[in-house]
Nucleic acid binder design. Sequence first.
DNA 1: GGAACGATCTGC
DNA 2: CAGATCGTTCCC
Length: 198
Amino acid sequence: MRARPVPMRLLAGDAPVVAPQLLNKVLVVGRCRVRIVEVEAYTGDDPASHSFRGPTPRTEVMFGRAGRLYVYFTYGMHHCANVVTGSPGDGQAVLLRGGVPLGGLELMEQRRRTVGRPVELCNGPGKLCQALALDRSWDGVVLGRGDAALVDDGVPPPLAPIVTTRVGIRVGVERRWRWAVPGSPYVSRGRPSGDDRR
DNA sequence: GGAACGATCTGC
DNA sequence: CAGATCGTTCCC
């Protein structure tokens, strides 16, 4: 099966619908490729979302067209990468939290400063960005044009993904908007506040 | 102008 | 389990 771009019509859906569909898709950044195995959804009416209080200089990309990267900086040292979804004005995005390194492993190991432990390269949103060298300069980049892309290589999303509460939030915990590929050791270690069940 | 707080990671 | 570390947001 040959890889084809994830269609815009998929990304233009609501984040909680799109998110589980992004499981097992492949994120390509430069020479590096990562299979996404853990995601979270954020929406404009969601108190846990950066977009909750309307657009700001930081979050304006979230309110733009679907199919762009929203990359933010947090905790004074980490970056997190999202794929913008929905329609302009919505403020929706899917946070990429974990992935399986498929290509460019050496480069990722250099950036992460780890050796011989592929699981440690992308099992967390900050780690994934460090491995792929994603920072604020990538904010707003259109996927599929240039050095970043989201592609479907034929591996379908899991029929029964793990569904849990999102990690690291204090509000909006009632929304179970975290999805992961069952059994994958490449999901983040971040512990959701809710139960880890389907 | 200033304070509080992160959609995290690491090492102890 | 605490510390690192600084951009963003909000309040005065």
